[in-house]
Nucleic acid binder design. Sequence first.
DNA 1: GTCTATATCTTGATAGAC
DNA 2: GTCTATCAAGATATAGAC
Lengths: 190, 190
Amino acid sequence: MTKLDTKTQLLNIAETALRQRGFDGFSNADLADVAGIRKASIHYHFPTKADLSVALMDRYCNTVQGACDDIDASHASAGARLRALIGYYRASLGDGSTICLCVALSTSRESLSQELVGKMIGFRQIMIGWLKVTFEQGAGDGSIEGGTQAGYEAKAMLALLEGAHLAARDDRDIRQFDAAVALLLLRCKR
Amino acid sequence: MTKLDTKTQLLNIAETALRQRGFDGFSNADLADVAGIRKASIHYHFPTKADLSVALMDRYCNTVQGACDDIDASHASAGARLRALIGYYRASLGDGSTICLCVALSTSRESLSQELVGKMIGFRQIMIGWLKVTFEQGAGDGSIEGGTQAGYEAKAMLALLEGAHLAARDDRDIRQFDAAVALLLLRCKR
DNA sequence: GTCTATATCTTGATAGAC
DNA sequence: GTCTATCAAGATATAGAC
């Protein structure tokens, strides 16, 4: 485990901060404290807060896309894939405080750049696309119970996952997440 | 239509601002501008921003509770009640920018008082309680299709509604809300 | 109830030395 | 790459006149 370069370190700290407290809820001072550098030094790596946020969202999209690919590669049935994605969202809650980056940014939508809002919409499209394909496969192989309208299933499920994150975070209790997705898990037959 | 007193006016302005931009996204200056008074005058009505937020959340809980009572009084079947609640959430999106107050506050959870977080959790309990009863009635009178586990249905549906708000707001397109709740609406048979 | 004036703090960002 | 020093703007909040 080599030591991370400062830029990556800042991205990691910022991602956690943003997902815990929102775009308007963390400052360069917070990042500097954790990173152990002065806040002015942050501008060397990311000239503005907007630049940092765009970089964060780019990395997040890639990470989640990669997670979806991994899930596809390591699970045979659509039902197992859906279960795995639910597990991924569950794990990303961490100690119950880190909601999805896209959700954390949503509240501050009005003060964000068009570029960033575009990336947030792009993130949802990635997720909905993957979910739609998975629901279609689940209807085909019989591993996911329920309707055949995969497009609506996908949008409903993403909304449910994001809402489940919020409920769990407010309560600081991951069981709220589990309760919200319980029926969805029951639909995954194998 | 008599003119509103300043305190109510401030609550209205603050509710819209908070639901559009989050707790850290609006300031006394914003409220003062719209209300047509100086920002220092706000402290006469609400000593601190925390006081204002608590008052907002109290009013919000009462309003939504009242809406649920109205829905119960004016719809015979559980399915019709569920449809009406979905319509209520849909209408509360306004032009697509005003998400649920509780969701708007969630992002800033870490910087909020324990009192306020408690009220947010209380709000969800109100909604989940109402939803659970409605799903139970729906299973009884056959007006809502699907499982009999009303408690899980309730938590899943609240999460879905909140997530649907976020998706619609990011896109500024209420059709994202409609798509997310489409299958839910289909389950309401009468 | 609302005003002016002010205090104090934090924010994002820049300039320039090392 | 990181530092010190500094800036202008914006935040919440208070004191006291009217």
